[in-house]
């Protein structure tokens, strides 16, 4: 059974799009508009998501702040994360943080391969 995908991004169109195309592929998707909302959503889930797609620039709690909380939280620490940003240095930043990276705008196939890797 496929694991679910968690999307944290403050851009509503990105959230809607990712949810639609991943659901098309048979994944269940939960969306949050910032880190704080995402944290609450995960707490309410019975089964941890297989992957968190994490935007970096978000209000309230940004991607970096979320990652810090995740590392310190036993329950979250094992959930794989993919940085999702238009930042030119996203790859080096993700390597430093020990997470995956997806640069905006991403190809459909590329996105799917990262999701499959963690959720199938």
């Amino acid at each position: 059974m496929k694991k679910s995908v968690m999307i944290m991004d403050d851009d509503v169109d990105i959230r809607l799009t990712l949810a639609d195309i991943l659901e098309d592929e048979g994944y269940s998707v939960t969306s949050a508009s910032d880190g704080l909302e995402g944290l609450q959503a995960i707490n309410n889930m019975t089964q941890a998501p297989g992957l968190i797609i994490l935007d970096l620039m978000m209000p309230n709690m940004n991607g970096h702040e979320f990652l810090k909380v995740r590392t310190e939280n036993e329950k979250l620490a094992n959930i794989p994360v993919a940085y999702f940003s238009a930042d030119t240095e996203i790859h080096s930043k993700s390597q430093e943080a020990g997470v995956e990276s997806i640069r905006k705008p991403v190809n459909f196939g590329e996105l799917l391969s990262v999701v499959r890797k963690h959720c199938d």
Binding site: I14, T17, A86, T88, P105, V106, N107
Partner: peptide, 16 residues
């Protein structure tokens, strides 16, 4: 950075 953000849903929707 700003131009790449709205390009994301555009690209994904079309490719989907």
């Amino acid at each position: 950075h700003e131009l790449r953000t709205p390009m994301t849903p555009l690209k994904l929707q079309i490719q989907s």
